[in-house]
Design a protein around this nucleic acid. Structure first.
Lengths: 321, 321
DNA sequence: GATACATGTGTAATCGATTAACTACTGCGC
DNA sequence: GCGCAGTAGTTAATCGATTACACATGTATC
């Protein structure tokens, strides 16, 4: 910057003003400065700028698993929304581990992100408290924690789950296996609670860990126990369950019905296509980013509750209903 | 930091020494400083540190599309490798747009990443030159550019493609449709060149844009033109092609054979399972990160060329061979 | 007891920007 | 010709760390 100033025959203050679009500099001075910048290929140091202004124009996003298309879509939406407001997004991959999650959150805080979006790995509120104590704007996404005091953005699947339950029971299923998320995540608990309530006693629940492998294992166990329908609470576990069904040579929906939480672009390619509860991932991501930006700007955004929708495709024997 | 120093009754220099594990401070002083840090909940400002040390312990990764599982896996692997060396990764999503790619690269440079991993959207070398001119360590991943002078990490599918071509021709296909990547990407051109050479005249090529939609369109066109086999050069376009096949009610492999570049966890679930050329994504990501770290440490890593493997599953009528 | 040397700590410059406070100049009215 | 307002630009403090150098103290050597 000093070089640019010298080159243009002005002071660094003037260069800075030109850079930041202040009113002061003469068009003629501005011209000279811009020429010098161009000539020297000068690019301002964002670190120095942020240090001085205490604003990094960056949001942190800590998600459980980048390989899960559900989170990838959310990440993508967050990024789009953030970019359209001049913010960057730094993504941290917690790998469904609370420890790694904490590490990433701290790293992002050390780098002074202007705000943080978090999909908490567990419902333990201590990390959230830590962030809030630091005064950093925080929005929770997809999952919440016990006693959360910050805005939360999530999708409500209650209606879809209830409707799904009615259909399954109506179709005569009397042993319905539920492959749920971990009981220490809000989504794991809530979705399961709603569904089992709606199923009224015909459900048996196995908890997985939101990973493919746990889906196969849970499916194996439930099928062994005589389940004639499976409801899987996450797309990766759904992948595992479908693999197990295929490995056993079972016919969907004749031998076993299946429905999965989270839609995937390849579900319609299966035979029969998979019935899902689709979450509005793009809207969730955008809404979360908007809430966070509002918080950063000193407003107090409300919680956002979007609706997940049941999409009937055939894997629950819809044709027969 | 001043507060911590005051609290511990020492100077900021001593606090800094304790923080950085210098030999100097007495165990007793160190103890006092650590206590003060603990008590005040102090966390060092990474921006200030980086400004002073000119090292951010951060790698930039600019990829074409986060929603493409191929790149998501790579990102994941890069991150793992980087983290194990104490580095963070900032991911930028170029969305297959050269313009957005350039924007991201510049943003990352402005933030003074210690090195950059790039999956170039086109083979135009100007952006690469710009980075090199800035003296920032750079490694290309998956794709290269014309006259690249930096290390490149990629997977070689020549052998797999040749072997696939032999099988298709051997199975009697005489009209083979190739859904290729954009001709201005190295992967788009090279894979197509190898395959068409091996097919020797029975191939007709349509270029897509590495997106699902272009896959369906290309498949539609090729099928209309009488293709009895499709080779798709990327998993998203493969998804589109499979959708088109399904929409037309064609049977795989009886009516049409298909093979896809890039494996996906759900390919084995289809009926028949999809034959693929699988790239070693995790190894590619890790190798790229290692090359970049080597470059940062002043070494001159060689290009890395991994091998993509043909995985026969049935969608090309392998049973009949 | 003076000299040299090691050791632990403090002082202050520095990284590259922003910006408040100040100075210099121009032009205008009386 | 003087004062005043307004504008364009400079000087220097600042953000929060690191680190070369200076300094004070304690120990070893002759």
């Amino acid at each position: 910057m000093k070089d640019v100033a010298q080159h243009a025959g002005v002071s660094t203050a003037t260069v800075s003003r030109v850079l930041n679009g202040h009113a002061a500099p003469t068009p003629e001075t501005r011209e000279r400065v811009l020429a010098a910048i161009e000539e020297l290929g000068y690019r301002p140091n964002a670190l120095a700028r942020s240090l001085r202004t205490t604003s990094t124009q960056t949001l942190g996003l800590v998600i459980s698993d980048l390989l899960n298309p559900f989170f990838a879509e959310i990440a993508r939406a967050v990024e789009d929304e953030a970019r359209s407001h001049g913010y960057c997004v730094v993504i941290g991959n917690a790998d469904e581990s609370a420890e790694q999650e904490a590490t990433y959150v701290r790293t992002l805080l050390d780098r002074r992100v202007d705000g943080l979006l978090l999909c908490p790995a567990t419902d333990d509120p201590s990390l959230v408290r830590e962030v809030s104590a630091g005064g950093v704007p925080l929005v929770l996404l997809d999952r919440t924690v016990r006693g959360a005091t910050c805005p939360v953005v999530r999708a409500d699947g209650s209606e879809a789950l209830t409707s799904l339950a009615r259909r399954l029971v109506g179709a005569g299923h009397s042993r319905i296996g539920v492959i749920a998320g971990p009981p220490d995540t809000s989504t794991g608990r809530e979705r399961t609670a709603v569904l089992t309530a709606a199923l009224g006693g015909v459900a048996s629940v196995v908890h997985g860990d939101f990973r493919q492998e746990s889906g196969s294992q849970a499916a194996a166990k439930l099928i062994d126990d005589g389940a004639t329908a499976l409801v899987v609470m996450d797309n990766l576990m759904g992948l595992g369950a479908l693999g197990e069904i295929r490995a056993r040579g079972l016919q969907i929906p004749h031998d076993i019905a299946i429905a999965v939480f989270d839609d995937q672009p390849w579900f319609p390619l299966l035979d029969p296509p998979i019935t899902v509860i689709a979450q509005p991932t793009v809207q969730m991501g955008r809404a979360a980013a908007r809430s966070l930006l509002a918080l950063i700007n000193g407003q107090q955004p409300d919680d956002v509750r979007l609706t997940a929708k049941l999409v009937l495709r055939g894997s629950c024997g819809e044709a027969e209903l």
